[in-house]
Simulated scan of single mutants.
Amino acid sequence: MSRLVLLLVVALGVALGAVGMLSVQAYAPARVDTADRSRIERVVHDYLLAHPEILPEAMQTLQDRETAARGSRAAMVASANRTAIEAPFGSAWAGNPAADVTLVEYFDYNCGYCRASMPAVAALLKSDSKVRIVYREFPILAQSSVDAAKMSLAAAEQGKFQGFHDALYAGGPVTAQSIATAAQRAGLDLRRAAAFAPRAQAEIAANEAMAQKLGLTGTPSWVIGRKVVSSALPLEELQKAVAAARAGR
């Protein structure tokens, strides 16, 4: 290994946040002694101080690689667990029951971006008769999110998810009163809902465990074929993801 190549390798390691000595040990040939390593590290140190503009580029490269790696891992998890992820809980779904593409949304009733995504989801379902959306409760923002999720799952168990879902979103901020009002408007059997609470909690725990495996970082998060993303998506991006899923990408 030439000295120039060695310097470039070590410089890259340092620029990407690695410890200089570890980089040298990882890449330098065994014949490089301690004195040589010290000189190499000093040269790299001085070079980086003289040319700090390479650091943002190196860090961006590292971030891009890490993002790609996370996406690849998430896609593998999504593929391996497709049946469990796409199987709706009760009536917590909308669209075509025989859809060729299923979108799974992990959401929180307190999430403003989830609320803002509703028109795009509605437009997608209206424009594409071969898709289905499955809603998965992922209450991570507040205790009221958990309370709403439990009632939502009770509604799904009773076949009244959509009525509760729409009523709660239309009811303003999520509170004990707005949850109760939405349940009443959806026609829920409240005694049955109360008895269902332990099963609802188990479903929430299962969703949280899967979300962790998928690397979800917030709400809304989407699983569409092999695509996994934690972000609000406009209609155009949802359509692109559906098209990619249909193409097997």
Rank of each mutant, 00 (worst) to 15 (best):
V5G: 05
L6A: 10
L8I: 05
A11D: 00
G13E: 02
G13I: 09
V14P: 03
V14R: 15
G17I: 05
Y27L: 12
P29Y: 07
V32H: 00
D33C: 07
A35H: 06
I40T: 11
V44C: 07
H45M: 04
L48K: 14
Q60T: 09
Q60M: 08
T61K: 07
Q63T: 08
E66S: 09
E66V: 13
T67F: 00
A68Q: 13
A68V: 08
R70E: 13
G71S: 04
S72Y: 00
R73A: 15
M76Y: 04
S79Y: 01
I85M: 04
E86P: 03
P88C: 10
G95R: 05
P97A: 12
A98Q: 15
T102P: 02
T102W: 03
E105A: 05
Y106I: 10
F107Q: 11
F107D: 06
C111K: 07
G112T: 10
Y113Q: 03
A116N: 12
A116I: 01
A116V: 03
S117Y: 05
L124F: 10
L124P: 05
L125A: 09
L125Y: 09
V131R: 06
V131G: 03
I133C: 02
V134A: 02
Y135G: 05
R136E: 07
F138I: 06
P139Q: 11
A142S: 15
Q143N: 14
Q143P: 01
A155Y: 07
A155G: 08
A156Q: 06
Q158C: 11
F161R: 09
D166P: 00
A167S: 14
L168N: 07
A170F: 08
T175L: 15
Q177W: 09
S178T: 15
I179Y: 10
I179R: 09
Q184V: 11
Q184I: 06
R185V: 13
R191T: 14
R192L: 14
A193P: 12
A197L: 11
A200C: 11
E208K: 14
M210Y: 07
K213R: 14
L214E: 01
G215C: 05
T217F: 03
I224F: 02
K227P: 00
V229Q: 12
S231A: 15
L233R: 02
P234W: 05
P234A: 06
P234R: 03
K240F: 00
R246L: 06
A247W: 11
A247M: 06
R249S: 12
